[in-house]
Design a protein around this nucleic acid. Structure first.
Lengths: 344, 344
DNA sequence: GGAATGAATGTAAGCGCTTACATTTTTCCT
DNA sequence: AGGAAAAATGTAAGCGCTTACATTCATTCC
């Protein structure tokens, strides 16, 4: 008597289903991919066989034969904090509505790793890719062009890049914020920037600060600029450094909210009142920004719109629309308590 | 004159590399997968051809032929906050050390979606799976057994489950914390639990509170228990509800740090002093807990140890080790300022 | 009633790769 | 130098699926 608990020890294939339903593999395949081409009667027989056998198509084989996977990939610099979480979520939701699955990889802000991930995702059959920022080895772009894999660059806007992109103007957003800071009487500013060498957003944001200073008659040379990896610890350390100066700044702008959270925490540790003694601002407006005390004044970026727009762009590109459309979305300032007037 | 900018319009295959290098496809394949089997000279020729052509292996074809992908999958309830981020990071790092790639999917805390994701990841060729918690449709377990896909259950320990697992005792951890709370004189407790219906961790933690109350001579019936989805908004709302009672609790235990962050934020809004008027505790000890004001007293769970251990377990399982090993890791309490003595 | 039409199904050729097995080349003894 | 063992390489059979094309069968129309 056979063991009833293991109905059939092997993984069922299309072949098995076809045999069981008494049809050809082609018919089974059609039942699964283009049901309207199959008569109702056969379809029912086949589907019955499918469920009876617990059949699930082999993705690799399908991809190999069909040359598409209905899978898009996204490569984000980090998944350790929420910076990209909201945008990704929206991206995924929109993709889901189009029957597309999302694969996510993270590059840890390392260009070399990102290049690997691009290849890995493409090798895995990603039909299209979401990328963060414009900065990357031309070879990576070349690779994607050669393989004709559509991609969209997000989180940044660079007019005339020639690449499909959807993002906001990091420079302008940071300049806007800086203008407000200066408008509150701050003259001695510091910026804890992200690592500009490999990160165009960090670079753009730093440029924004300089731009606004110049526009307001301040000398950008007077900006105290330090770089820190995007992390609270690094943010805290950088803040401590900046404030250790003989004549410390009255406002510390941070390259993102995570750095700002670290800075704020360090301010508490140092017994500094924010914004009484020093103002702190962030960038990104992630949920964290509103949970801190005081709440972080920060740049609200269009997370969800970027995610959703990127998804639509990619779907369009896969349907043969020409690449190169550059969408610029607005960013705004979210006012909370961490930014106040400069102390006298 | 041919266009030099598009060297060859098609995607190079193993075949192409073999032709260019003047060897057989088998040799190329070996160069890529078992270099030590190939003589140095040929290897160099082949690798040169690989780079010259910009060859990248087709993952689907490889999976199809080799019947394994060196890819593991993880399905987490959410990626919107950092609850699982730290553990996943450690998981990924350890996998990387073993040459395994990680694919992540999120189920949004929905059992039906999780079941889909399990099938999707397996169809995509995941060699093994990391799962969070024990609760899920037996059919999902059946599916994995049938396909012989190794998996490990994490974030929870259930003795005698018969499944490979690595986690901590949610009940005991929450009981430990509750005991401390009671020890500080709190008699009127509230718990904002996660949704217990589909979440064994939430259920276990709630049990832990009841257990500790009984052990301390309190009647668990007196516990004010509300459920909330894991989110700050929901946490804030639940906290407001709980505190609206005629005789509000002096300590509000939260099912996780995110709920607690919402509760704390709501306390600020309501002008309540924490812990002067009411104590608040969290669970998970994510980075956020230390950034809030006051810092959150919470249960520190072994994020990284679980992630790393899960990776090792899975690698072992893939190498034929028998399943069923249950590892229990300790959790501890991280003391910060949000928990204080009960007000008189 | 029979030809023309169209719907439903089947046949079979790959998709790009791995690997068991066969063959050739090199190495190292005696 | 001769030959056995070891190392390097080649041959070719699939892996599970899709799809162009061929075939069969039921309609429809004159």
């Amino acid at each position: 008597m056979p063991d009833p608990s293991s109905p059939d020890d092997t993984i069922p294939t299309l072949q098995d289903v076809a045999r069981k339903a008494g049809v050809s593999t082609a018919t089974v395949s059609r039942c699964l991919n283009a049901p309207q081409q199959v008569s109702t009667a056969t379809r029912e027989t086949v589907m019955a066989a499918v469920t009876a056998l617990g059949y699930a198509p082999n993705f690799g084989a399908r991809a190999l034969a069909a040359k598409r996977t209905n899978t898009f990939g996204a490569i984000v610099p980090t998944m350790r904090n929420a910076i990209f979480a909201e945008g990704l979520q929206a991206f995924q939701e929109e993709l889901g509505a189009h029957g597309v699955t999302l694969l996510v990889a993270s590059s840890s802000y390392r260009p070399d790793l990102e290049a690997d991930q691009i290849r890995a995702l493409v090798a895995r059959g990603a039909d299209a890719l979401l990328l963060i920022g414009h900065d990357r080895d031309p070879e990576s772009y070349g690779f994607l062009e050669r393989r004709k894999v559509p991609y969209v660059v997000t989180w940044a806007h660079r007019a005339g890049s020639g690449r499909s992109s959807i993002g906001f103007d990091n420079t302008r957003a940071m300049a806007d914020l800086t203008r407000e800071v200066i408008g509150l009487g701050h003259r001695k500013l510091a910026l804890i920037a992200g690592e500009r060498g490999t990160n165009d957003r960090a670079r753009d944001r730093a440029d924004g600060v300089a731009l606004a200073m110049t526009a307001s008659g301040l000398d950008p040379k007077d900006l105290v600029l330090v770089e820190a990896p995007y992390g609270t610890d690094a943010g805290a350390r950088a803040f401590a450094d900046v404030m250790a100066a003989p004549r410390p700044p009255t406002a510390v702008l941070c390259g993102n909210d995570v750095i700002a959270a670290g800075a704020l925490s360090q301010a508490h540790t140092m017994g500094l009142d924010v914004p009484g003694d020093v103002s702190i601002t962030g960038f990104d407006d992630i949920e964290l920004a509103g949970l801190l005390t005081p709440g972080l004044t920060t740049v609200a970026v269009p997370h969800r719109d970027m995610g959703r727009g990127a998804a639509r762009t990619l779907v369009d590109l896969c349907n043969g629309q020409p690449a190169g459309k550059e969408v610029e979305l607005p960013a705004s300032i979210t006012w909370r308590a961490s930014l106040g007037p400069a102390p006298d």
